[in-house]
Amino acid sequence: MSMAEATARVPVEKTYKMYIGGKFPRTESGRYFPLEDQKGAVIANICRGSRKDFRNAVVAARSAFAGWSAATAYLRGQILYRIAEMLEGRHDQFTAELVLQGVGKRKAKKEVDASVDRLIYYAGWSDKYQQVFSSVNPVNSSHFNFSVLEPTGVVSMLAPDDSGLLGLISNVAPAMVGGNTCVVLASESMPLCAISFAEVLHAADVPAGVVNILTGFHEELTTQFASHMDVNAIIYCDGDVDVAKSVQIEAAENMKRVISRVDTKWAEESAQSPYFVQDTQETKTTWHPIGG
Protein backbone atom coordinates (compact mmCIF):
# COMPACT_ATOMS: atom_id res chain seq x y z
CA MET A 1 0.00 0.00 0.00
CA SER A 2 1.44 3.34 -1.03
CA MET A 3 1.21 6.40 1.12
CA ALA A 4 -1.23 7.96 -1.24
CA GLU A 5 -3.48 4.97 -1.06
CA ALA A 6 -3.18 4.86 2.65
CA THR A 7 -4.44 8.41 3.08
CA ALA A 8 -7.07 8.41 0.29
CA ARG A 9 -10.66 8.54 1.43
CA VAL A 10 -12.86 5.71 0.25
CA PRO A 11 -15.95 7.19 -1.37
CA VAL A 12 -19.31 6.10 -0.01
CA GLU A 13 -21.37 4.56 -2.74
CA LYS A 14 -25.07 4.99 -2.89
CA THR A 15 -27.56 2.17 -2.69
CA TYR A 16 -30.26 2.77 -5.24
CA LYS A 17 -33.59 1.80 -3.76
CA MET A 18 -37.15 2.31 -4.96
CA TYR A 19 -39.63 4.97 -3.89
CA ILE A 20 -43.03 3.78 -2.65
CA GLY A 21 -45.45 5.67 -0.46
CA GLY A 22 -42.87 8.28 0.49
CA LYS A 23 -40.37 5.67 1.65
CA PHE A 24 -37.31 4.13 0.05
CA PRO A 25 -37.67 0.38 0.38
CA ARG A 26 -35.68 -2.28 -1.42
CA THR A 27 -37.74 -4.59 -3.57
CA GLU A 28 -39.70 -7.02 -1.46
CA SER A 29 -38.47 -9.75 -3.79
CA GLY A 30 -34.85 -9.30 -2.80
CA ARG A 31 -33.89 -9.42 -6.47
CA TYR A 32 -31.50 -7.02 -8.21
CA PHE A 33 -29.87 -6.42 -11.53
CA PRO A 34 -26.44 -4.95 -12.01
CA LEU A 35 -26.13 -1.70 -13.91
CA GLU A 36 -22.88 -1.60 -15.81
CA ASP A 37 -20.98 1.19 -17.42
CA GLN A 38 -19.80 0.99 -21.01
CA LYS A 39 -16.68 -0.89 -19.95
CA GLY A 40 -18.72 -3.49 -18.18
CA ALA A 41 -17.93 -2.36 -14.66
CA VAL A 42 -20.77 -2.48 -12.21
CA ILE A 43 -22.08 0.96 -11.34
CA ALA A 44 -24.77 -0.13 -8.96
CA ASN A 45 -27.07 -2.98 -8.08
CA ILE A 46 -30.54 -1.89 -9.06
CA CYS A 47 -33.69 -3.21 -7.43
CA ARG A 48 -35.51 -5.59 -9.73
CA GLY A 49 -39.01 -4.59 -8.72
CA SER A 50 -41.72 -7.22 -8.55
CA ARG A 51 -45.47 -7.33 -9.12
CA LYS A 52 -45.91 -7.07 -5.38
CA ASP A 53 -43.83 -3.92 -5.29
CA PHE A 54 -46.08 -2.57 -7.99
CA ARG A 55 -49.17 -3.58 -6.05
CA ASN A 56 -47.84 -1.78 -2.97
CA ALA A 57 -47.09 1.28 -5.05
CA VAL A 58 -50.64 1.34 -6.45
CA VAL A 59 -52.04 1.11 -2.93
CA ALA A 60 -49.86 4.06 -1.95
CA ALA A 61 -50.87 6.02 -5.03
CA ARG A 62 -54.56 5.31 -4.45
CA SER A 63 -54.45 6.42 -0.85
CA ALA A 64 -52.62 9.60 -1.81
CA PHE A 65 -55.11 10.45 -4.54
CA ALA A 66 -57.87 11.97 -2.42
CA GLY A 67 -55.55 14.46 -0.77
CA TRP A 68 -53.46 15.33 -3.80
CA SER A 69 -56.41 15.76 -6.16
CA ALA A 70 -58.07 18.03 -3.61
CA ALA A 71 -54.94 20.13 -3.06
CA THR A 72 -55.31 23.59 -4.49
CA ALA A 73 -53.84 24.31 -7.87
CA TYR A 74 -51.66 26.93 -6.22
CA LEU A 75 -50.19 24.38 -3.82
CA ARG A 76 -49.53 21.89 -6.60
CA GLY A 77 -47.77 24.60 -8.56
CA GLN A 78 -45.70 25.54 -5.54
CA ILE A 79 -44.64 21.95 -5.03
CA LEU A 80 -43.69 21.47 -8.65
CA TYR A 81 -41.65 24.63 -8.50
CA ARG A 82 -39.99 23.36 -5.34
CA ILE A 83 -39.05 20.15 -7.14
CA ALA A 84 -37.42 22.23 -9.82
CA GLU A 85 -35.46 24.18 -7.20
CA MET A 86 -34.26 21.01 -5.55
CA LEU A 87 -33.24 19.55 -8.89
CA GLU A 88 -31.37 22.67 -9.87
CA GLY A 89 -29.44 22.47 -6.60
CA ARG A 90 -28.34 18.95 -7.42
CA HIS A 91 -27.55 19.73 -11.02
CA ASP A 92 -24.00 18.36 -10.88
CA GLN A 93 -25.08 15.10 -9.32
CA PHE A 94 -27.66 14.42 -12.02
CA THR A 95 -25.26 15.40 -14.76
CA ALA A 96 -22.70 13.03 -13.32
CA GLU A 97 -25.22 10.22 -13.11
CA LEU A 98 -26.21 10.69 -16.71
CA VAL A 99 -22.56 10.68 -17.73
CA LEU A 100 -22.03 7.56 -15.71
CA GLN A 101 -24.83 5.95 -17.69
CA GLY A 102 -23.17 6.85 -20.95
CA VAL A 103 -24.52 10.28 -21.86
CA GLY A 104 -22.00 12.79 -23.13
CA LYS A 105 -21.16 15.53 -20.67
CA ARG A 106 -22.61 18.42 -22.65
CA LYS A 107 -25.71 16.49 -23.51
CA ALA A 108 -26.11 15.42 -19.92
CA LYS A 109 -25.90 18.97 -18.71
CA LYS A 110 -28.47 20.03 -21.27
CA GLU A 111 -30.79 17.25 -20.20
CA VAL A 112 -30.68 18.36 -16.59
CA ASP A 113 -31.26 21.98 -17.66
CA ALA A 114 -34.25 20.89 -19.71
CA SER A 115 -35.58 18.79 -16.85
CA VAL A 116 -35.57 21.75 -14.48
CA ASP A 117 -37.17 23.92 -17.11
CA ARG A 118 -39.84 21.33 -17.81
CA LEU A 119 -40.79 21.25 -14.16
CA ILE A 120 -41.01 25.03 -14.12
CA TYR A 121 -43.13 24.89 -17.28
CA TYR A 122 -45.69 22.58 -15.69
CA ALA A 123 -45.53 24.37 -12.32
CA GLY A 124 -46.76 27.36 -14.24
CA TRP A 125 -49.60 25.42 -15.79
CA SER A 126 -51.00 24.26 -12.45
CA ASP A 127 -53.56 27.01 -12.11
CA LYS A 128 -54.09 27.67 -15.81
CA TYR A 129 -54.86 24.49 -17.69
CA GLN A 130 -58.26 24.39 -15.98
CA GLN A 131 -59.01 27.84 -17.36
CA VAL A 132 -57.96 26.81 -20.85
CA PHE A 133 -59.96 23.58 -20.97
CA SER A 134 -63.04 24.35 -18.85
CA SER A 135 -66.22 25.71 -20.27
CA VAL A 136 -69.51 27.18 -19.31
CA ASN A 137 -72.07 25.60 -21.58
CA PRO A 138 -75.04 27.70 -22.68
CA VAL A 139 -77.74 25.07 -22.44
CA ASN A 140 -81.23 25.63 -23.77
CA SER A 141 -82.95 25.60 -20.38
CA SER A 142 -82.86 27.35 -17.05
CA HIS A 143 -79.69 25.67 -15.85
CA PHE A 144 -76.16 26.73 -15.09
CA ASN A 145 -73.98 24.16 -16.80
CA PHE A 146 -70.23 23.96 -16.68
CA SER A 147 -67.50 21.48 -17.50
CA VAL A 148 -64.26 21.24 -15.61
CA LEU A 149 -61.32 18.88 -15.65
CA GLU A 150 -60.69 16.43 -12.85
CA PRO A 151 -57.71 14.09 -12.60
CA THR A 152 -58.26 10.61 -13.99
CA GLY A 153 -56.86 8.94 -10.86
CA VAL A 154 -53.93 6.60 -10.49
CA VAL A 155 -51.72 6.64 -13.57
CA SER A 156 -49.17 3.96 -14.31
CA MET A 157 -46.25 4.97 -16.49
CA LEU A 158 -43.66 3.04 -18.39
CA ALA A 159 -40.96 5.69 -18.60
CA PRO A 160 -38.96 6.04 -21.81
CA ASP A 161 -35.78 4.05 -21.90
CA ASP A 162 -33.56 6.50 -23.70
CA SER A 163 -34.15 9.56 -21.58
CA GLY A 164 -33.49 8.64 -17.97
CA LEU A 165 -34.33 11.94 -16.35
CA LEU A 166 -36.05 14.26 -18.82
CA GLY A 167 -38.26 11.50 -20.20
CA LEU A 168 -39.39 10.55 -16.74
CA ILE A 169 -40.10 14.10 -15.67
CA SER A 170 -41.92 14.87 -18.93
CA ASN A 171 -44.45 12.20 -18.06
CA VAL A 172 -44.66 12.62 -14.31
CA ALA A 173 -44.97 16.40 -14.21
CA PRO A 174 -48.10 16.86 -16.36
CA ALA A 175 -49.88 13.99 -14.63
CA MET A 176 -49.07 15.15 -11.12
CA VAL A 177 -49.69 18.82 -11.74
CA GLY A 178 -53.17 17.75 -12.79
CA GLY A 179 -53.80 16.07 -9.46
CA ASN A 180 -53.16 12.46 -10.47
CA THR A 181 -50.96 10.15 -8.51
CA CYS A 182 -48.51 7.94 -10.36
CA VAL A 183 -46.57 4.77 -10.33
CA VAL A 184 -43.58 4.92 -12.68
CA LEU A 185 -41.38 2.19 -13.96
CA ALA A 186 -38.02 3.88 -14.53
CA SER A 187 -35.88 3.50 -17.61
CA GLU A 188 -34.36 0.07 -17.49
CA SER A 189 -31.04 1.05 -19.02
CA MET A 190 -30.77 4.39 -17.21
CA PRO A 191 -32.44 3.98 -13.81
CA LEU A 192 -30.08 6.03 -11.65
CA CYS A 193 -31.58 9.46 -12.18
CA ALA A 194 -35.07 8.14 -11.48
CA ILE A 195 -34.12 7.10 -7.98
CA SER A 196 -32.15 10.26 -7.34
CA PHE A 197 -35.14 12.17 -8.60
CA ALA A 198 -37.25 10.37 -5.99
CA GLU A 199 -34.94 11.92 -3.40
CA VAL A 200 -35.59 15.29 -4.94
CA LEU A 201 -39.35 14.69 -4.76
CA HIS A 202 -38.96 13.64 -1.17
CA ALA A 203 -37.05 16.79 -0.33
CA ALA A 204 -39.59 18.97 -2.10
CA ASP A 205 -42.45 18.05 0.22
CA VAL A 206 -44.32 16.01 -2.36
CA PRO A 207 -46.85 14.11 -0.23
CA ALA A 208 -46.14 10.42 0.22
CA GLY A 209 -47.60 8.23 -2.50
CA VAL A 210 -48.18 10.97 -5.07
CA VAL A 211 -45.25 9.73 -7.12
CA ASN A 212 -43.97 6.21 -6.75
CA ILE A 213 -40.93 5.05 -8.69
CA LEU A 214 -39.97 1.47 -9.32
CA THR A 215 -37.00 0.02 -11.11
CA GLY A 216 -36.96 -3.30 -12.85
CA PHE A 217 -37.49 -5.12 -16.11
CA HIS A 218 -40.08 -3.64 -18.43
CA GLU A 219 -40.70 -6.95 -20.06
CA GLU A 220 -41.62 -8.44 -16.71
CA LEU A 221 -43.71 -5.58 -15.33
CA THR A 222 -45.49 -4.09 -18.33
CA THR A 223 -48.35 -6.55 -17.98
CA GLN A 224 -48.79 -5.61 -14.34
CA PHE A 225 -48.82 -1.91 -15.16
CA ALA A 226 -51.41 -2.43 -17.87
CA SER A 227 -53.73 -4.85 -16.12
CA HIS A 228 -54.07 -3.63 -12.52
CA MET A 229 -57.77 -2.97 -11.91
CA ASP A 230 -57.16 0.00 -9.61
CA VAL A 231 -55.13 1.92 -12.15
CA ASN A 232 -57.13 4.41 -14.20
CA ALA A 233 -54.71 5.25 -17.00
CA ILE A 234 -51.50 3.96 -18.46
CA ILE A 235 -48.82 5.85 -20.34
CA TYR A 236 -46.28 4.03 -22.44
CA CYS A 237 -43.40 5.49 -24.37
CA ASP A 238 -41.55 2.63 -25.98
CA GLY A 239 -42.07 -0.71 -27.43
CA ASP A 240 -43.12 -2.20 -30.68
CA VAL A 241 -46.60 -2.84 -31.98
CA ASP A 242 -46.88 -6.05 -29.98
CA VAL A 243 -46.13 -4.31 -26.70
CA ALA A 244 -48.62 -1.58 -27.51
CA LYS A 245 -51.18 -4.19 -28.42
CA SER A 246 -50.80 -6.16 -25.22
CA VAL A 247 -50.93 -2.98 -23.15
CA GLN A 248 -54.17 -1.98 -24.84
CA ILE A 249 -55.75 -5.38 -24.46
CA GLU A 250 -54.93 -5.59 -20.78
CA ALA A 251 -55.92 -2.00 -20.17
CA ALA A 252 -59.36 -2.68 -21.61
CA GLU A 253 -60.22 -4.93 -18.69
CA ASN A 254 -61.18 -1.87 -16.63
CA MET A 255 -61.38 0.63 -19.49
CA LYS A 256 -58.10 2.33 -18.65
CA ARG A 257 -57.22 5.39 -20.62
CA VAL A 258 -54.28 4.35 -22.77
CA ILE A 259 -51.86 7.10 -23.68
CA SER A 260 -49.12 6.43 -26.17
CA ARG A 261 -46.09 8.72 -26.10
CA VAL A 262 -44.09 6.63 -28.50
CA ASP A 263 -41.73 8.64 -30.73
CA THR A 264 -41.86 11.72 -28.53
CA LYS A 265 -38.70 13.82 -28.80
CA TRP A 266 -38.22 14.53 -25.13
CA ALA A 267 -35.66 17.25 -25.58
CA GLU A 268 -37.86 19.30 -27.86
CA GLU A 269 -40.55 21.82 -27.10
CA SER A 270 -43.11 19.56 -28.70
CA ALA A 271 -42.72 17.25 -25.69
CA GLN A 272 -44.47 19.72 -23.45
CA SER A 273 -47.94 21.22 -23.67
CA PRO A 274 -51.11 21.54 -21.64
CA TYR A 275 -52.49 18.75 -23.82
CA PHE A 276 -50.13 16.41 -21.96
CA VAL A 277 -51.93 17.50 -18.80
CA GLN A 278 -55.29 16.97 -20.46
CA ASP A 279 -54.34 13.40 -21.38
CA THR A 280 -54.89 12.31 -17.79
CA GLN A 281 -57.92 14.45 -17.05
CA GLU A 282 -61.60 13.64 -17.13
CA THR A 283 -64.20 16.21 -18.11
CA LYS A 284 -66.94 16.56 -15.53
CA THR A 285 -70.10 18.41 -16.47
CA THR A 286 -72.37 19.77 -13.77
CA TRP A 287 -75.93 20.99 -14.15
CA HIS A 288 -77.73 23.21 -11.70
CA PRO A 289 -81.07 24.95 -11.97
CA ILE A 290 -81.25 28.72 -11.99
CA GLY A 291 -84.27 29.65 -9.94
CA GLY A 292 -85.48 31.64 -6.99
Binding site: T283, K284, P289
Partner: peptide
Protein backbone atom coordinates in the same frame (compact mmCIF):
# COMPACT_ATOMS: atom_id res chain seq x y z
CA UNK B 1 -66.44 10.32 -9.64
CA UNK B 2 -68.59 10.61 -12.73
CA UNK B 3 -68.70 12.59 -15.94
CA UNK B 4 -72.10 14.22 -15.64
CA UNK B 5 -73.54 15.42 -12.36
CA UNK B 6 -77.03 16.78 -11.99
CA UNK B 7 -77.56 18.94 -8.94
CA UNK B 8 -81.23 19.42 -8.07
CA UNK B 9 -82.19 18.07 -11.47
Amino acid sequence: RAGVIWANT
